[in-house]
Design a protein around this nucleic acid. Structure first.
Lengths: 208, 208
DNA sequence: GGCCACGCTAAGCGGTTGCTCACCTTCGGC
DNA sequence: GCCGAAGGTGAGCAACCGCTTAGCGTGGCC
């Protein structure tokens, strides 16, 4: 049995760690609903209905609607950190590692855009303490990318004017993929990943 | 008397075309509320309250809450098209025109992030026919940027692998500024505009 | 077989939502 | 001084919200 589940859109999402089964079904239904309509416009009745359950069933597994968003957001951000960390710490030149990080990160945002949209754009719907926890994970994402860029500068491979600003721009570019990417559009997630890796290497002045 | 109004955040927004006065105050209050909480989480009582009016006053000037968002979105997108068109059609080399377009567009998203956030991120809250109208304006934005890039390629100044993809990435980078920019952060809108203009020129392979 | 913990449902609670309606002012034109 | 239009208000409607509670079926354990 796989630890990956498929949403109705055919995406692969790592919700295997969520148990029991009914809790996972509710969480996957919430991801779809939040991505389609936004957190505030989604009703608990809608989530429960998509999971084939009554509204009350939701409250057996989750204390509030916000806890659902919190769980989704934390798991998603942990995955994001994992993707970037894996690319940052692999073998290879800074350019290879940066290209790997960008293409993997973009593929995740494009292929799992339903999840990514919730993870990246519903942060403000969280309460203060939950948001603070997620922001710490975002800073880890930033640190991993900045580390690669600093390595490239130290190795004399990159030419960057503003490390902080360039790091932010690289992450911003990747994250915004979740907003515009459409699975029925002209590109596959792999193609966007490759295109963006090339654009980012140009941004840091690599491979001249 | 100026045609520009200031929101509570000190931003300059061109709502001068909205009359009468009460309708403009309601619209500016709606922009603030939508940017802070999102369209669906904002109540008509909140909008009216910010404008110093009773809830019922809103319906004298606007038929529904959605009409408010529609008006905001259309005026904002018209301004966006105007900014890009002005930069695209000025005198100068393609590199100068692209740098101008990016820095102006970024300055608008950073300086007027309250408005820009509503304009760029609440599109899905619109009904089908209103959304279709706005999407036509977005295609005009895309066409202006693509035009500059194509001019640069034709002049032999730019080196671009995928014109469509690069155009999308440039716009995506600029638009996402509205998501992360914070007026209390380390950068001014001008600084981000200059940084991003440099990054975009690198993306299109100019100035090597 | 008796029992009870578990997962779930039907019904519904108090509160809030977008929006309406009856009515009240203010004010320029005559 | 009268009037009607324009712009506003207080009260409130029907619908819907997140969430709770009482009770039901079922499967494992002794």
């Amino acid at each position: 049995m796989s630890t990956a589940e498929e949403t109705a859109g055919g995406e692969v999402a790592p919700w295997g760690e969520v148990t029991p089964d009914a809790a996972r079904r509710l969480l996957m239904a919430a991801v779809e609903a939040f991505a389609e309509r936004g957190y505030h416009a989604t009703t608990t009745r809608d989530i429960a209905g998509r999971a084939g359950m009554s509204p009350a069933a939701l409250y057996i597994h989750y204390k509030t609607k916000e806890e659902l968003l919190h769980r989704i957001s934390r798991i998603g951000h942990e995955k994001a950190v994992d993707i970037l960390r894996t690319a940052a710490r692999r073998e290879g030149t800074p350019a290879e590692r940066l290209a790997d990080a960008v293409s993997s990160f973009v593929r995740w945002h494009a292929g799992g855009r339903t999840t990514a949209r919730v993870v990246q754009y519903e942060l403000d719907s969280l309460g203060p303490e939950a948001r603070a926890e997620i922001l710490a994970l975002r800073r880890q994402c930033d640190a991993e990318v900045r580390g690669i860029i600093e390595d490239g500068i130290a190795a004399g491979e990159f030419d960057v004017l503003d490390v902080k600003g360039t790091t932010l721009a690289v992450l911003s570019l990747c994250i915004d993929v979740a907003r515009w990417f459409n699975i029925e559009g002209p590109w596959t997630p792999d193609e966007v990943g490759a295109l963006y890796a090339d654009l980012v290497l140009r941004m840091v002045g690599a491979g001249k």
